[in-house]
Computed example of a mutant assay.
Amino acid sequence: MAKDWEWDETLYADSAPHYAVGRMPYPPSLADAIRKELSLDGRGRLLDVGCGPGSLSLLLAPMFETAVGVDADRDMIIQASRRASETNATNVRWRQLRAEDLPADLGGFRVVTFAQSFHWMDQALVARRLRDMLDPSGAWVHVHATTHRGMPGVDPLPHPRPPWDRIDELVARYLGPVRRAGRSLLPTGTRAGEEEIMRQAGFTGPSRIEVSGNQIVDRGVDDIVSVVFSLSSSTPHLFAADLPTFETDLRRLLMQTSDNGRFSERTREIAVVVWRP
């Protein structure tokens, strides 16, 4: 990540409704694997940091007495709250705040989870603060997943795969060749070096588990459009006045690839890394 990159509130601006629609859901087998690894029994509290629209929070909440999802983006919290109401998830509450502002009087937790979010944070600071919030026998769980696109391949599927390379080219034509992220650019990508940071913060481990993918998912044009707008590198606000034209070009490209507007992908494997305080 560029040394001068700083988080700002536009990182996922306008993307929350698209995130909830475009991203593939986490499979129930992920919850089963975490339950088994951590011997979860319905007791304790869960904290999901960078919860987005609640995708992981709502999947894991039934395994705890209560759960809290926090996210810096107000619209993500609105989406998460709406989804919780739709699924009658009554043991989850939501807070709009940055991870760097924890503990924020939230108390202690049995498990803290991150999914596709830790790389956006001041990792060393967040790791230190969350270690103090974890029960001594608790766990930090980092879910490494790619839910916006499936595995590449040439094997036959029910429908064509989305033309991701051409979609990337189209985005670059509008936004430039260097990845966008909020008001800044990410010429070298997001942060790495998690293991060193975790050890410096006093965590031990990690243990690792893998959740198999390879499930076939069918998706429509609207789903793929939402995928693109769910990404920090192509959130709707980045296109400014060009947004309608870009969306028209994107939909045209998709219909050129699949004349019935349907696409298929194989889901990717999910890696879960568990650290102990």
Rank of each mutant, 00 (worst) to 15 (best):
G107A: 09
A127G: 04
P27C: 09
R173G: 12
T10N: 11
R166A: 13
E247V: 08
P177M: 04
S39H: 14
S117Q: 07
Q256S: 14
R128N: 12
L60T: 09
A2Q: 14
S207Q: 12
N88K: 11
T146D: 14
Y174T: 00
Y26G: 00
R35W: 04
R149W: 14
L157Y: 01
P25R: 01
A201I: 02
S207L: 11
T257D: 05
N91D: 11
N91V: 09
L186C: 12
R95W: 10
S233K: 12
I270K: 07
G52W: 02
A240N: 09
L106R: 02
S15M: 06
L253I: 10
P162I: 04
P162D: 11
R208Q: 12
V112P: 03
L157P: 01
G182N: 00
W120D: 01
R129G: 12
R83G: 12
G153F: 13
A139Y: 00
A31W: 03
P162M: 02
L253G: 01
R183A: 10
D71G: 04
W7D: 00
A20R: 12
G182M: 01
A13Q: 14
Q215T: 15
D4I: 11
I209W: 02
A201N: 03
S207E: 13
V273K: 13
G69V: 03
H237S: 13
G108A: 12
G22F: 08
S212T: 15
V143N: 01
R179P: 03
W5C: 01
M255T: 14
R180L: 10
V178P: 00
L58D: 04
D218N: 15
L253Y: 05
A99L: 08
L106M: 03
R276F: 10
D222Y: 04
P236F: 08
E247Y: 06
G54D: 08
P17L: 10
A80F: 05
L106W: 03
V126E: 00
I270S: 07
G22L: 07
L58S: 09
E210Y: 12
R251T: 05
T188Q: 13
